[in-house]
Structures are given as structure tokens and as C-alpha cells.
Design a protein around this nucleic acid. Sequence first.
DNA 1: GAGAGTTTAGACTCGGAGTCCAAGGTCGTG
DNA 2: CACGACCTTGGACTCCGAGTCTAAACTCTC
Lengths: 192, 192
Amino acid sequence: MRRLPPGMREKVLAAAELFAEAGLDGTKMEDVAAATGVPKATLYYYFDGKEDILAFLFVEILDELGRAVAGAVAGDGTAAERLRAVVLAHLGVIEAFPAASRALQFDLGRAARSPVIARHTDAAFVEPVRSLLEEGARDGSLRRVDHPRLVATAILGAVATTGLNALTPRARRPLARVADDLTTFVLAGVAA
Amino acid sequence: MRRLPPGMREKVLAAAELFAEAGLDGTKMEDVAAATGVPKATLYYYFDGKEDILAFLFVEILDELGRAVAGAVAGDGTAAERLRAVVLAHLGVIEAFPAASRALQFDLGRAARSPVIARHTDAAFVEPVRSLLEEGARDGSLRRVDHPRLVATAILGAVATTGLNALTPRARRPLARVADDLTTFVLAGVAA
DNA sequence: GAGAGTTTAGACTCGGAGTCCAAGGTCGTG
DNA sequence: CACGACCTTGGACTCCGAGTCTAAACTCTC
């Protein structure tokens, strides 16, 4: 993937809507071209292919998540309080970027098998939360767990599944409504 | 999809390996034919297409999950004890059918958008667990939650994500190793 | 104004999904 | 047994869409 000229990033981000709706394979390059206003040949000039475009979107949303989580982790309070902030931050990113979030969920398996995406997921969520869990064990606000990475993964799964589920056309409800039960569940799960 | 002749089901189940590896779109009908020993024309005689084969696999694994979960729910003990059994049963199904489980995760988005699959997921896991949570609120072994369906979804997400993560070639470790931390997390999350 | 990089239309190749058909097989029923 | 209904399969075919390629135009920078 080539370095993008100014403005291209925003245009390509608009393709998230398509991928969220139909997934990578249900989306045609022509559709991407039409939706973004960037001609097919130009897309191929900058990206290695359709999958590369999707990967770009995933990295963007994961970096966004990473920034939000890092902000929550860096806040004030006990580890437990900051863990709550992390969950809310994650829900906030899902709410702010619903299309990209749903696209990520749609092609989750593909994403999980890409080393690049796996690395970004880890850096954005798993690793910060793991570290927060260990901090909580030290400051006494959280229970000590045997495998903090594993529990961090469980938390990621719980939040992502619940948040995205709330976004489906069927169950569409404001994420604020789900936040209470979800944060309580997660916090209780690791409370001291 | 036509009613399958005896033996066909088992043969087609062998295709799960392919879908787990490459997903729906990375898998060619010819590969499915080769792996199952069922000629392409015959596959098209019984199934409406590639996606229909995948849907068949998903329904099979979800029904398996449904039976395992139902067994755990129907067991003895408090709701809390049975919830622990549900989590272990879920991990057991993932361990017993790793290929189909990974295939389901690979094309999770597609699955989530199919009403048939969504119905099976709900019947196999979400609804039984929701009901168990309410029972636990009555028998005093679990905390009362505002939206039990939502918490059930969160539990599903936590278990599936953790279990499948443990199956990846990278992190491959016996699921028994993850079970302790995971059940503790889930149980504490909803304990009274 | 020359060269390097960018932008684009449009024609092209190629692979794979799904269709179709025809020949043959296997039943169950009279 | 014979007939009709359904099952089974090979192989050829259509069609669509990803990705490639080319050539022409445009836009910088030096």
C-alpha cells in the first residue's frame, strides 16, 4: 500500500459502509469506486487489492480504539475505575464508527488470521487491559488472575459482542443503555 | 437444501476444515468436492450453493452447542453452578469441533446476518443462559441484572472469543487451561 | 521543459460460481 | 419384469468480477 495523498483517507473510509453491509466478498471494487468517488484504477494504484483496503480500514478503527483505550488507561483513579472507563471508551468507538466496527466484525475471521491486524488488536486493547489487570492486582482494586491476557481477551469478546449486537438493525438501541449492565458485569468479573 | 441421504452429512462435515482455514470465499467448490468425496454436481443437487453448505455446517455446530448447553442447564445445583457447567460445555463443544467452530468464527459476520443462524444461536445459547440468569436471581445464587439477554450475549462473547483464541495455531493451549480463569470471570461477573 | 510520479479510462485475462444436460444408476410399485 | 420417479455424475457452458495492463493526460519539482 502506497502513502495516501491528502483527502484519500477520508474518501476510502466511506467504503466501510459497504463492507459493513456485504463483507469483503460481497463488495465489488466498482462499488467501492462509486461509493468513494475514487476510480478503480486509482484504488489499485494505492492499494494492493480489495483485501488491502479492508485491512486499511481495520487498522484505522483499531488505532482509533487504541487511542481511546490508552486515554482511559492513562486517566485518574484505581485500576478498577479505569477499567470501567476502558469499557466505556470501547463502546464509544463502536458508536462513533459503527460502519467500520461492523465491517471488522463481518470479516472477523479474516482479520484474526492477519498478523498485522492481530498485532493492532493486541496493541489497542489486549495488552493495555492486561497491564491494567496486573496494576489492579497491585493496587488492590482488582482480583489477581492467573492469566491476565486471557481475561483481557474475554473482556474484549464480551464488550465487542455486546456492543455490536446492540448495533444490529434488529436490536438497535442506544449503547448507553447497554453500558450499565455491561460495565457492571465486567467489573464484577474481576473485582477484588 | 434437499434432505440428505445417509452418509452425506458426515462427508460434508469434513468440509469444515476447509472453511475454517480459508473461509467461505477462499474455499472453492472443487475443493469441497475433493475433500468430501462428493462430486460438485451432486453438491449442487443437494445444496443451493456454497453459502448453503456453510449454513448447514453452522446449524450443525449450533445444534451441537444447543444440546450441550441444554444438558448443562438441566443438571443439578444452583443456577450459578449450572452456569459454570454451561461455560464448560461451550468450551467442550469448541474443543470437540474445532474446525466447525473456527469456520463459524471466520464467517461470523455472514452468520450474524442470516436470520436462520441468528435464530439457532439464540436458541442454543442466549435464550437458555438468559433464562438461567433469571432463575439465579430467584434462587439467590446470582445477582439480578437489568437486561439478562444482554448479559447472556456478553457471556457468549467472552467464552467464544477466549475459546477460539486459545485454538489459534499461535496460542494453541489446552482449553482446560483457560477454563478456570474464564469460568471464574464469568461467574464473578454475575454472582450474587 | 524534462523527468518523475499521479490519475484515469477502458480493454483485457483469468479463475471460479453456478447452470445445464444427457447418460446412466437405483429404487419402489404395478 | 418393466416403468417411472428420483439420484448421481462428468463435462461443457455462461457469466461475473478481481486484478492487470497500457496509453494518454496531468501535475509537480528542479
